[in-house]
Write a protein that binds this DNA or RNA. Structure first.
Length: 378
RNA sequence: GGGCGUGUUCCCGAGUGGCCAAAGGGGGCAGACUGUAAAUCUGUUGCGUUUCGCUUCGGUGGUCCGAAUCCACCCGCGCCCA
């Protein structure tokens, strides 16, 4: 259940009740595709990184270790020792990102495993069954994430199919949740809005799925190559048609600035690989802008990555040391940087919440939306 | 002392007469990354007034229209014989 506490323009401040605890919105989810945050950060570490939700992936866990294994191990929460909410992505994004290895049909998608080439099939029912086995807090509907740009006719037909798939997801999820062997019978289901960059298709799709009674509504298929302004425009056009009493989730987004701008337009939930992936590649988000930890200028810098941060990395180590770790290829570099970036994103959401509570989010946006995407100056 | 071999740009290393400022690695420097097939990928790495000019391949001096490449001597290093 979602409770809207207050608004500022279209920006929303709320509380999302889940079977695994309440979450203040807006919030950011930390991506651990294969039931682990890449870079060597465990669910125990996440507790001191202010993580609200961990996101895992249906496709990846189905392939390895197998959702049957996780089911037998009691579900994902128990498996990775994380008692807060988990959101599982449906495999829909892999329809997009593994485009060379798949074939889309009405019944679902035929994949070749990226691990060993084995043929497999995932359709709406399979995705729901896998996610039910994983026993996540929130399951995502199985969709097609359309590439960009794509012909209007293709996008139109794809979206109609995604809607039909949604109906099958709803039916299958209801059936699975009523079975006594189900680990999490209160598993929630979110729908995903698609439509590429055609806002009329997006709006029609949102109106349709908005009437289908889901637990939340996601916007997918953005930040896949289109200009940022196009993404913002679509949010402006589509969000007014998303049910106001349900959380809105912008999938796979994004930069700190993208998040601020999307909250401004009415989004409540985010996830992105950017903080963790960029951290492993030595790109660090700070309250003064973006820095590359390997840059020569930090060779003798005794300051922490971000002097305004109190994450485990910033409390204990210097830029000079972390630069050295990266240069030396030490795994600790990635781990510390990932801890920092996740803490930064989670703290960003704290500050957004505070600004909304105090009715000064507009001011916050004016200052931080440009600052956080600038290069860190010294 | 004699024989054989070897010396290339920051390092290793290819190149044995022109297509060589010189392959390929490494290292350095910089950048990208948005529901993770990503601890990955890209650019750059002699100097300059940059569709061209200059300096460079242990040193010096030659041969040649032309030399990192051929010749002579010298210097350094390696192995073998004394």
């Amino acid at each position: 259940m979602f409770v809207l506490k207050r608004t500022e323009g279209r920006a929303r401040r709320g509380l999302f009740h889940t079977p695994h605890g309440d979450i203040e919105t807006p919030f950011f989810m930390n991506v651990g595709t294969a039931a682990a945050i890449k870079g060597g950060v465990s669910s125990v570490d996440l507790r001191e990184l202010k993580t609200r939700v961990e996101l895992c992936n249906t496709y990846h866990l189905h392939l390895r270790p197998g959702d049957d294994i996780i089911y037998k191990m009691g579900g994902l929460h128990k498996f990775m020792n994380w008692d807060k909410p988990i959101l599982t992505d449906s495999g829909g994004f892999q329809v997009f990102s593994l485009s060379k290895l798949r074939k889309i049909k009405e019944e679902g998608v035929y994949f070749a495993s990226h691990i060993d080439g084995r043929r497999l099939f995932i359709g709406p029912e399979e995705s729901m069954r896998i996610q039910s086995h994983l026993a996540s807090t929130i399951a995502m509907a199985f969709d097609e994430c359309v590439e960009n740009p794509a012909p209007r006719e293709y996008v139109q037909r794809s979206v109609e199919r995604t809607t039909r798939w949604l109906g099958r997801c709803i039916d299958e999820m209801a059936r699975l949740n009523s079975e006594p062997s189900t680990i999490n019978p209160k598993q929630m289901l979110f729908a995903i809005n698609q439509g590429g960059t055609y806002d009329d298709i997006r709006v029609e799709h949102m109106k349709t799925i908005g009437g289908m009674g889901l637990d939340g509504y996601a916007i997918g298929g953005l930040a896949v190559g289109e200009p940022t302004e196009v993404m913002y425009h679509i949010l402006d056009e589509v969000l007014p048609y998303a049910p106001a009493d349900k959380p809105r989730y912008l999938m796979g987004v994004g930069t700190p600035s993208n998040i601020i701008e999307a909250v401004w337009r009415g989004v409540d939930m985010f996830d992105c690989v950017m903080p963790s992936r960029n951290a492993r590649h030595a790109t660090i988000f700070t309250w003064g802008g973006i820095m590359h930890a390997t840059n020569e200028r930090y060779k003798l810098d005794e300051r922490p990555l971000d002097p305004q941060c109190d994450c485990p990395a910033c409390r204990n180590f210097s830029r000079a040391y972390i630069r050295h770790l990266f240069k030396a290829g030490e795994q600790l570099a990635g781990r510390l940087a990932v801890q920092h970036n996740l803490y930064f994103y989670n703290t960003l959401m704290d500050r957004i919440n505070e600004a909304l509570d105090e009715g000064r989010f507009g001011e916050f946006r004016d200052k931080y939306s440009p600052l956080l995407e600038s290069k860190l100056e010294d």
